[in-house]
């Protein structure tokens, strides 16, 4: 951060005035400097774990929000301390080019501020920019308070051990705001590849004959697996039923137009959160499998006669920093398939 301001026991009005002053001073001293104007992001974190979230934002690549307001919640705190700074992504300005600057505010607040957090955050937002809120350590009260300011809520449905509760909460939030779910974004390459696997016209008809879906996932990524199955159900017009615990994980059925579809979710060990593999089988004996592999996904296709082909679908892992960056980017896009998938996932999770 090139310019920094801080004050103990401060007020939102003073923070906002300081930010305005820093931006103006910076502009006067360095003409090619231009503040980014894309998105406000408000993050509510436990003060003890703020470092972890700050590190995640350091790794989002180019997808930094224009103004990041980090609210660190400290139990028992009554007053507000704040720090504001401004800086550019570029270490060295390039002659003839603009330097894009980003603003960052950190405020230390107490539990008692959460229910009225909107009154503290409101003056700190850049007007006319979309605002996204995220509370990675819970703090549902803060999110509820910020609902009137937020057009987008960032969530990670895999953060909550109780998947049913997690999906129900997101469904409620999506009534009022656009929800960007990191668990959903982790499944994007899988959804793209499954769509591609069935895209050749002669294979599209096979979608009507899908008879079994098996999703392998990291132990804590059940929500991502459910959303993936919810996506298949909603896109293919299946009526899913609740999954039940079985030896390998969870299993159940969805009703397709022609037949029952067996659904299995199998936890497996892997380092990266999210899905580990997907197998889709058809009633006629064909199957498509995708599994994580070096340099992409290992694909296998089994024909009706039992013959099998394997190959690698190229693609680099985005890592967790990349997933958060993608979450920030997705805030300004709209994916019409998430809510229907969420609706079906809720049925599976019951």
């Amino acid at each position: 951060m090139d310019e920094v301001w801080s004050e103990r026991n401060t007020t939102p009005a003073k923070i906002e005035a300081a930010l305005r002053r820093i931006v103006t001073e910076h502009h006067h001293s360095d003409h090619p400097f231009v503040p980014a104007r894309v998105l406000n992001v408000v993050v509510v974190v436990d003060a003890d774990f703020r470092g972890e979230i700050e590190n995640r934002f350091e790794r989002v690549g180019r997808y930094h929000p224009s103004r990041l307001v980090l609210c660190a919640v400290e139990p028992g705190r009554d007053s507000i301390d704040a720090w504001a700074g401004i800086g550019t992504d570029d270490a060295e300005p390039v002659p003839g080019h603009i330097a894009v600057a980003r603003e960052r505010v950190e405020i230390e607040i107490g539990q008692r501020h959460l229910s009225k957090l909107d009154t503290i955050v409101d003056p700190l937002l850049v007007s006319d920019l979309a605002t996204m809120v995220w509370a990675p350590h819970g703090h549902d009260a803060a999110i509820d308070s910020l609902r009137r300011l937020a057009q987008i809520v960032l969530v990670d449905t895999q953060d909550e051990p109780d998947v049913d509760r997690s999906l129900a909460r997101v469904e409620d939030l999506s009534e009022h705001a656009y929800v960007v779910d990191l668990a959903w974004l982790r499944s994007t390459p899988w959804r793209e590849r499954v769509a591609a696997a069935f895209d050749p016209p002669h294979l599209r008809t096979a979608l009507a004959g899908v008879s079994a879906v098996t999703v392998r996932h990291r132990e804590d990524s059940l929500a991502a697996a459910m959303l993936f199955c919810g996506w298949l159900s909603s896109r293919l017009g299946w009526k899913p039923g609740p999954l039940a615990r079985s030896d390998a994980g969870l299993s159940g059925h969805a009703r397709a137009r022609r037949q029952e579809v067996r659904i299995r979710l199998e936890p497996t060990h892997q380092n990266a959160p999210g899905l580990a593999g997907v197998t889709i089988e058809t009633a006629s004996g064909e199957a498509v499998s995708l599994d994580r592999a070096p340099g992409g996904l290992r694909a296998a296709r089994r024909a009706r006669d039992g013959s099998e082909q394997t190959w690698t679908v190229l693609g680099a892992s985005r890592g967790e920093g990349g997933i958060l960056g993608e979450g920030v980017r997705q805030a300004l896009l709209r994916d019409p398939t998430y809510r229907p998938a969420l609706g079906c996932a809720r049925v599976l999770a019951r």
């Binding site: 994007t188 769509a195 895209d199 050749p200 293919l236 019409p336």
Partner: peptide
Amino acid sequence: MVATTENPLVEGLERLPVPAT
């Protein structure tokens, strides 16, 4: 619903499938 001519899975995807080439 599944249609024989459309791929229902591509809806909403930013990266659309590209034919094998």
